[in-house]
Design a protein around this nucleic acid. Sequence first.
DNA 1: CACGCTCTGCCTGCG
DNA 2: GCAGAGCGTG
Length: 794
Amino acid sequence: MSGLKEEYIQAKKQLFDHYYRFLNQPQREAVYTLFNPLLILAGAGSGKTTVLVNRIAHMIRFGDAYACDHVPENLSQADVDALKNAVSLPDEEIEPILASMAVNPCPPWRILSITFTNKAANEMKTRLTNRIGEDAGAADIWAGTFHSICGRILRRHAELLGYAQNFVIYDQEDSKKAISTVIKDLNFDESMLQSKAVLSEISHAKDSLIDPLEYLDAVGKDYRLKQIGLIYQEYQKRLKASNAMDFDDMIVQTVTLFRKYPEILSQYQNRFLFVCVDEFQDTNKAQLALTVQLSGGFRNLMVVGDDDQSIYRFRGATIENILTFDKLFPDAKIIKLEQNYRSTKNILQAANEIIKHNQGRHEKRLWTDKGPGSPVHLKEVSDQNAEAMFIVDTIQKGVLRQGRQYKDYAVLYRMNAQSNSIEKGLSRYSIPYRILGGTRFSDRKEIRDAMAYLSLIANHSDNERLQRIINEPKRKIGEKTLTIVHEIALETGQSDFAVMEQSGSYIALSRVSDKLVEFTNMINRLSALAEESSLEMVYEQMLKDTGYRMMLLMGGQEEKERLENLEELKSNIAEYTQNADDPSLNGFLEMSALVADVDKYDESADAVVLMTIHSAKGLEFPIVFLPGMDENVFPSYQAIAYDPSQMEEERRLAYVAVTRAREELYLIHSESRLLFGSTQYNPLSRFAGDIPEEILDEEEKETKDFFSFQSRPIRATEIRKNGPVRSKSMAGESFRTSMEVPKPGASVTHPVFGDGRVISVSKVPADYICEVVFDRVGTKKLLLSKAKLQIKES
DNA sequence: CACGCTCTGCCTGCG
DNA sequence: GCAGAGCGTG
């Protein structure tokens, strides 16, 4: 009997293994391991998402069927044989057999799946629905970002924390403005405390769950930090007064809620049978605390990540979370996914050679059964224009001669400032491209203004938004008036808006009272309208009543573009109204705050993609260019000069960059580079130097070739809307250097100013500006073509 | 109070 | 190279 039982369990496991035959052994193990803490170390391109999706599908359909050794009663040899033979059946017939053996399948609503981006959350939901079908209830899973999940929880319990249910969410810009107001109000020296730096400091404190009092306690005698602590304290007070939370607060407040109200926490703990966290290497301390809280009921916590791809320390991520997960949960099982399905052997080796220099990492080594492929290409060029031309040239050749498509190519750079020259090159040669990152739609002034109006309509106590738009368009309400309003508000404990409404009763405001009341009346009317009308109507009325649309209509080309953006916002609103279950102004504001610009990266469009390496994490491309393989660019100047501890992160970034490539990888180093208005001369990046020569193909420096496509006619349809294609003569000109251009550091002589040393050289159309420190007269900026500079040989 | 000019400072960036 | 902040003037 027990032999038969064994045989049955064996056959069952074999059938599951067969069903998951598209997975490798460790991947299957990850799918089967449902209980207790589990850490999956998923190397780049190791099929992480596939595992995540199949694991969740598995718990919903089969529960613990695989590991459980339950055996049906009255088991017969015939049953066991049938199970053994099922292996030869098609998958559609195997599924019901497996389902019939399900043990405690998990209802979807008891699963919590946390991701970092909305894009990842959506991809997860889509793939899961494809896997298990609509009816299985994939939509009932709590899947979302940390922030969207916290938002959901906080809306329910905001009152307990002293917030109204309709609290607003401040983004970085709002926070920065609020902080700079606080700095001014506290009369601190603004030159010592830049709002950006203070915000980042406060944000990091929040990431680590340090509240203002604890912060002040910890800083001791450090004068500046003490000031920051006081700013932090006041900032929090004002956020609450404005009924607002910033992004960090959303996590912190949720953790606080759970600490204060254990009975609420246990509701969630009892609900979530399984908790999964993706991109665990990018979590911060607060997020870890929240994760531990939420999974605390059943302790079935799975985290997935790759410590080698931790590249967000600068925004608070602590790689320690993933490095010490097994210390936090000593019974945690660790599964490593080391087989890479993406890249060729050479590319993978390059990546391994780069990352192996890092100290703090989980030991693992990616491997592939793919062939070696091409060597990694290393190209040296003279300047950023030649760099762009090399990219253009390579893409043209690939498309014309090898039947490549434009979308096979990606250009990944360290910083957005590098994109300019490449964009110019691509548009000049009519190569279709799309660029990700840079200024986002929601960051545009007109969009922020419109959103600020909507926020104010929803929540009158939002002082920050009020300040933003009170005088936009101009209403003759100046800084002085606002200061008085704000002072009264602070004294009387009201919102700025409330003070404005009653400005007639304050002598200091009597002269401007009419204007202020006119404004609050308008907002009040719009708020009333929002109660009864559609969102689109409120939006339209707002643009009209505030005079915002009129202001833009009076303007020129730039304003026209802004109007178009406002129209686009309107269609976003319409889209939201149609899709949301219960559309409301508050709902729209919440979505806009938490859902960054809908991913505009349309993978179907045939165009070269340009983005930063950071944004490329998680993506892959057949051919990848990495321009700017220069010291001081990548690794970045600040990592080298200011913070050597950042170097490991730069190295991980290099690892991420290299592992994006499937087939071909081009590293480009430029001898000189025009960046931030001055020319730099940097040696080859150390990361390129880490790649062994056997797998490297160093291409000759050859600049003449780049002009070979110049005569190609440019089709009008190919001209990008925001990148006017330059005339051919200009194109030629910008590459010609007839003057002798001094390099920074060169000694020069000027007929009037005498001897000096060049500190920077910047390119301007058809000329250069040299910044020179003269021995006698100090620093001068000179136009190279005009100033008769002589370069001294040294 | 509004406008236009100069000055400055700059990496990466999800919610 | 460019945007946002600061400053001076009408």
